[in-house]
Amino acid sequence: MSWNFQEIQETIRREAAQIADLKDLEAFRVKYLGRKGLVQDIYASLATLPHEQRPVVGKGANDLKNDVSSIVEERTKAIKARQARDPGEDIDVTTPGVTVPPGHRHILTQTVDDICGMFERLGFVVQEGPEIETEFNNFTALNIPVDHPSRDAFDTFYLELPDPDRPGRYQLLRSHTSPAQIRVMQKYQPPFGVIVPGRVYRPDAVDASHSFMFHQIEGLLVNEDVKFSDLKGLLTVFCRRFFGEKIKMRFRPHFFPFTEPSAEVDISCYICDGKGCSVCRRKGWLEIMGCGMVHPKVFVAAGYPAGKYTGLAFGLGVERIAMLKHGIQDIRLFFENDVRFLEQF
């Protein structure tokens, strides 16, 4: 009978590493140190061995006994110490971890922050204006004629707050963010680029795609030689970054009183890739913003010298963008604040 002590030591080390509790440890002890354990077997075999081998094997058995004993002693201590710390040793590790889950930023806020952030990185500065505005800032200064339908009570909310500058007239809830342009221009001299997020109001009956309160973001860049090509370039960069590099774009002539030339920006529908679907109403294109070169009359109304500056301006509806981007079908969801909606974003 010969004993390979090296192999035995390795086995012991391996088994010791797998001991999880006191029960395992006892089995381990019995296996090696018990009355019928390995160490006893080795001692028993000594009588059958040649004399010259006996001291070597005897020493090996002693070493084994010492090693196993010290392992048992050490692990007993460790396991007991662990049990003392955590008496309910059997915790269910699959029950949920505990923290205060962070709240959810409203998806409209996220969309506003994303868009403004992109323009800020391009050098624009965020400015905000008040929701309660004057007819001058909301219409007149923006080259919207006195008889324009948007001034009717059908299209603008008027308040029971007298207009300090125009006796007999009343202040209103801004129907777009553009009056903030006027405020910026009255306060600062070009050159500048500003981006204006904000809430706006129009007396539209509420349905899946209309709301009497919604959000817009408006951009304005004024300098001495801003060109139409700058408008195209700037908005192309924005749309690519925001909607993806693959989208196609087109600038379609349109009409706004405060820009000339004016355009609407369409992007290829990313639902159907421009083939035509229900989201783009079979057009293959999605209308996402209005833009144009600032009308010279707007500069005059803002008090800038005639002909000195040119500028570009654009505006977009935040709800529409968020609805397109996230597949939200009903604008009312934004304002109902069902937590099952809020917590999806």
Partner: peptide, 16 residues
Amino acid sequence: YDNLPVSLPAVPAASI
């Protein structure tokens, strides 16, 4: 408009 060129405006460091 599609046949008009594209450029990137210099956005001036504003005093705002």
